[in-house]
Design a protein around this nucleic acid. Structure first.
Length: 453
DNA sequence: TCTGGGGTCCTAGGACCC
DNA sequence: TCTGGGGTCCTAGGACCC
């Protein structure tokens, strides 16, 4: 625990809505709602004028319209938000090299790394006041709320206390005086589910939490969560401000205004999303081994299915093919409201592409091949790896899209017009054999067959 | 016609390995 | 005719955050 209030948290007030009001004077002083404007959209940000009508973040746009019909409903201009955010983050980095952005509109700044003469309250308060003035300058008039404290937790709580356009400093040693009367949900990581569990245990405020032993908390909410809850409940927070965080996954998802029932359309949408994921991976110089799809059904039940390759990929065709294959195993009767594709298990290096997928990288969303999905399983060791090609005497050549130990799943792209039933073959089925030998490193790899391009 | 999109982290079970 | 123990990887689901 620091003895000085050297952690600063800055939060731009009603950020997206404020940028819109800045750029469009006719919106100033009026309710502005930024978010999804479709039938299933939700509110990202409501201006303070709109909040007076009860419009809140994460509320459905439908409800927001009902509460505040005269508001301006905007879908958002992310380039403007990003460039405005960049200006603020640059300003923060000029103040201290140790800046941790949490999102476009929020960041921690470690003033202990700022090279200040001291970290007394007056000094850090002055820095915060100057920052707030400079934020207004570089953003064309946006306001920020700032909190200062001895930890991330306290700084963040502080910045929330006097919104908008406020500054709150929590003097070292007074943390628990501030926290005790507050509801437990002030603690990061305590959402609706944890709040309910704690409520049943008679814990409502931080003062209540202070009296519960760590063992008891672990029993109530689990090991990791229980430990951190016990620490934060006593205002103990040693989490450092970290400027560089590694990306762990890249994903794209979409909710559709009407539920999808056409599997071919779903496959085409997944393929398009896979291209988008691929582009973003490549733009960041990343590739990943695990491809995951997310499917939300009409009744909001949400399923994830994933498969892991033996080496990382950033290839759109590969990601798309795996995604479509994963969808094949799911029952989507009743309709699908959301589809998504993600890649995780990221590495910032890309193994040589043994199968030449990079040569042709364009499964057209509109011309998806019909496919027959065949599962085979056996207790003998799997000799095929994802990405390999296999050949079947009558079904032709297929592509291994997933494998487990003792199980191999092969997707055959055939001339059939409709997907056939799922069939099982033993893995030692004599007709199922590697189509071509595994190339050795450095060997010349033949081109992918036409249909894989 | 309630309920976005982009993430992170944790848990739990099964397979596998030594 | 009983039956390990620890560690890692993978998958699926869930909670949470902005």
């Amino acid at each position: 625990m620091r003895q000085v209030a050297s952690v600063l948290h800055l939060d731009l007030d009603a950020f997206f809505a404020a940028v819109e009001q800045r750029d469009k004077p006719s919106l100033r002083g009026k309710p502005v709602v930024v978010g999804g404007v479709g039938g299933r959209g939700v509110v990202s940000t409501a201006s303070y004028e709109a909040r007076k009508y009860g419009v809140r973040s994460a509320m459905s746009t439908r409800e927001a319209r009902a509460r505040c019909p005269h508001a301006a409903f905007l879908s958002g201009r992310f380039h403007a938000y990003r460039s405005t955010s960049e200006a603020v983050m640059t300003l923060l980095r000029e103040t201290s090299p140790l800046v941790e952005p949490l999102s476009l509109d929020e960041a921690f700044v470690d003033l202990a790394a700022a090279g200040l003469p001291d970290l007394e309250i007056d000094t850090v308060t002055e820095v915060a006041e100057r920052l707030r003035r400079q934020v207004a300058e570089v953003t064309g008039g946006l306001t920020a709320s700032v909190g200062l404290g001895t930890s991330k937790f306290i700084a963040k709580v502080a910045s929330d206390l006097d919104k908008p356009d406020g500054l709150v400093v929590v003097p070292p040693g007074t943390e628990m005086d501030l926290l005790r009367p507050m509801h437990v949900s002030v603690i990061p990581g305590v959402g609706p589910a944890t709040t309910e569990r704690l409520r049943r245990a008679g814990v409502h405020t931080v003062a209540d939490l202070e009296t519960v032993s760590e063992d008891e908390l672990v029993r109530i909410v689990g090991a990791a969560h229980g430990h951190s809850l016990h620490e934060l409940g006593h205002a103990r927070d040693d989490r450092p401000v970290v400027s560089e965080r590694e990306t762990k996954s890249v994903s794209v998802e979409g909710t559709y205004d009407t539920d999808l029932t056409d599997r071919k359309l779903m496959a085409a949408l997944l393929t398009r999303q896979a291209r988008s994921v691929s582009e973003r991976l490549r733009a960041s110089g990343l590739a990943g081994r695990t491809v995951t799809i997310k499917v939300r059904l009409h009744d909001f039940t949400t399923m994830n299915r994933s498969t892991t390759l033996s080496s990382p990929t950033d290839v759109a065709a590969t990601i798309g093919r795996l995604a479509v294959g994963l969808l094949a195993d799911l029952d989507t009767t009743g309709g699908v409201r959301l589809l998504g594709v993600g890649v995780s298990g990221l590495a910032d290096w890309i193994q040589e592409d043994l199968f030449g997928d990079n040569v042709g990288d364009a499964d057209e969303a509109t011309s998806l091949p019909d496919a027959d999905v065949v599962s085979t399983s056996s207790t003998i060791p799997v000799t095929w790896a994802p990405g390999m090609d296999v050949e079947h005497a009558t079904m032709g050549r297929g592509w291994v899209w997933g494998s487990g130990r003792g199980v191999v799943t092969v997707r055959f792209e055939t001339a059939q017009t409709t997907p056939g039933p799922v069939r099982s073959y033993p893995i030692d089925e004599p007709e199922l054999k590697p189509w071509r030998p595994e190339p050795t490193t450095g060997a010349t790899v033949p081109d992918m067959p036409e249909r894989h391009r």
